[in-house]
Amino acid sequence: MGRYRWLVVLALGMGMAVAACGSGGGPVDQDGQPVSTETPRSERAEREATIMEQQAQQVAGQTAQDEPVPDTPIESGAGEVEDEAAASGVIDFGHREGLPFARNVVGDPDAPVVIVEYSDFQ
């Protein structure tokens, strides 16, 4: 189990980051209606940034030397988008600065681990 300690660290960090993330809406009932209150957006964004900063050092340098999670089929979105070249590049601001992106995807397209966040801006 120890050899996968980084996975636990990943889970902790992601869980906290997602919980703090401003992109989440609340849970919904069977009719798709929200049923819970939500943390104010700016507060969540600040918490996310804080958590990212605190935990980045904990993980950096550790993940690269551990074994990757086995690759599995990647979930695909629906719909096609034209002119993808104009929609990709390198992020030039914030905590993602320097990372390659293509629309809603950040990072190496061939990365072995795919983290998908399903969220609602509202």
């Binding site: 990212m52 993980v59 990372l99 990365a111 681990v113």
Partner: peptide, 13 residues
């Protein structure tokens, strides 16, 4: 983002 920087992961929304 740090995991993404290592090339270990990519993030999709």
């Amino acid at each position: 983002e740090e995991l993404v920087r290592t090339g270990l992961a990519r993030f999709e929304y």
